[in-house]
Amino acid sequence: MSSSQPIIQLQDIEKTFLLGDLHIEVLKGVSIDIGRGEFVALRGASGSGKSTLMHILGLLDRPSGGRYLLQGKNIADLPDDRLSALRNQLFGFIFQTFYLIPYITALENVMLPGLYGATPARQLKRRAEELLSQVGLADRLHFRPGQLSGGQQQRVAMARALLNDPQVLLADEPTGQLDSATSAEIMALLKSIHGQGRTVILVTHDAATAEFAEREVLLHDGLVQNR
């Protein structure tokens, strides 16, 4: 396995949903290679299948057809709990709606991915504090999500995504609920995360946001649009 091998290879990925008797083909054979340390934007209008593709990329869902090679290994053979472990170790997630747990503090939210591993709690806490100060929230450690602004919440989510030092960061419309000034801050953070040598995959409908990436993959009607 050479280091030049793509970290993610999608070959003819299909995804069909069953809605009653209706088969809805959302992905109709998507092939993408993503190299280590790349910053890729998956852009498409709503209904283009970009969210579904992101779920498959993040091991949150399995494809109905095609092959997904993660670091050269076919994930179709892996059981659910193995996928959980891979998500835990290899991926960080950032969602449009942040998905912070409302009744625990920012610090505890950031520690969450670490709780499903063997790292001692004290170490997790130190790492979470570090990450929160990196995203500029050193003075908000013990605030609940409800006490934070949208931009601050998204930064908590970014710190959380980095806790287990993942190789791949998946960001699904990370600025979708933020005003333009805050969005710029978040995108700058994303760029600096990429600068740390991580692979970043950004899912967006917005061409301007996609500009931040090195490469853009345009998705239309379940297929990659070649230009």
Binding site: D81, S84, A85, L86, N88, Y99, I101, Y116, N164
Partner: peptide
């Protein structure tokens, strides 16, 4: 969503 989030973050079933 809390359960889904925990699963996404790697919580085993």
């Amino acid at each position: 969503s809390e359960i889904g989030l925990k699963m996404a973050l790697g919580a085993p079933r």
